[in-house]
């Protein structure tokens, strides 16, 4: 059971990376982004491209940080994946959502457009890579470490947790210390006043997409390192990240972080009683439960 909780924390840190971006987009751009899961998938596959095609092609040597399953190639691929998805997210905003905002389309229309975008991204990945399950480094034995309390954990999983926490701390410092970060919080607080204050809200929106997309991409790469890559992986994360977002109150970054861990732990612990394929349904049931008991989430007012 303790082992499942530990696995849940690892899964939760990946969910949290998705949920934090989702909750920021939800609050600042103002709609439910159904393409957020595909940002995760996109990040995972961009890293795959860099690790298995781009870097070998330019002759970058393969290496591995034993006992981790990856090496310098992944270290380079990771930020590239985040940057590419960040740019993709901004580009989607410019060619799609911005046009709809200009037409005064409601949030539901924007959400629908994001659903369309999610299929477009997923189909593009399917066209390029097909529907197979892929590993970053196939055929590798990945032994687990024995920790106290009979917890077995792979070194990769410890790395995943640390990487996620590192990114969250970076985000925290960005929001608390930098001018742009404070302006983002201000816009999330009160968009009209931000506009009055002279903050160019379109620029804030672009930053929001970049951060949301980048964090989601990081989550996708980490999931790829932990398990494997599949074009449907992001779609399967969609319900858990929405559940985490709602649990932690929409717009609340720290709520999304905690929500991510709660959902991740609940999903992993449920495998003690249910078939693992029901993980998604577990996240869904928790979400329904919150909607019934406390729809504003744990950190919401009223």
């Amino acid at each position: 059971m303790i082992e499942l909780i530990v696995y849940g924390i690892v899964l939760g840190s990946i969910i949290a990376l998705g949920a934090i971006g989702l909750t920021m987009v939800y609050r600042i751009v103002g709609f439910a982004n159904f393409a957020h899961g595909e940002f995760m998938t996109g990040g995972a596959y961009v890293a795959l491209f860099v690790v298995t095609i781009l870097l070998p092609w330019i002759g970058f040597p393969d290496s591995r940080f034993v006992p981790l399953s990856f090496g310098w190639r992944m270290v380079i691929a990771f930020p590239i994946a985040m940057a590419v998805v960040a740019i993709l997210a901004i580009a989607l905003d410019k060619i799609l959502y911005k046009k709809l905002r200009a037409k005064k389309s409601g949030p539901v229309i924007l959400a629908m457009a994001s659903l369309g975008a999610s299929f477009i991204i997923r189909m593009t990945i399917l066209i390029i890579w097909g529907s197979d399950y892929i590993f970053y480094r196939p055929g590798l034995m990945r032994p687990a470490l024995d920790l106290p309390l009979s917890v077995k954990i792979r070194p990769d999983q410890i790395f995943i947790f640390c990487a996620a926490i590192f990114l969250v701390i970076l985000l925290h410092l960005f929001l608390k210390r930098t001018k742009m970060g404070k302006a983002m919080r201000a816009t999330a607080d009160n968009t009209d006043l931000a506009l009055v204050t002279g903050i160019d809200t379109e620029r804030i929106i672009a930053w929001t997409w970049a951060i949301g997309g980048g964090l989601a991409a990081a989550g996708g790469v980490l999931y790829g390192i932990d398990v494997q890559l599949h074009p449907g992986m992001g779609w399967n994360f969609l319900i858990p990240i929405f559940a985490a977002t709602i649990l932690g109150s929409i717009g609340n970054i720290y709520g999304a972080l905690i929500g991510g861990f709660v959902i991740g732990i609940a999903q992993q612990v449920s495998t003690a009683f249910l078939a693992p394929t029901y993980k998604l349904a577990v996240a869904f049931m928790i979400m329904i439960l919150i909607l019934l008991i406390r729809p504003q989430g744990i950190f919401g007012k009223e």
Partner: peptide, 26 residues
Amino acid sequence: GIPTLRLGEDYLAIATLGIAETIRLI
């Protein structure tokens, strides 16, 4: 509808998406 129709439009969307996936899983 019971948990979602009192809330914003997007909650219904997320909930129906979830129920569809759950039904398929079952």
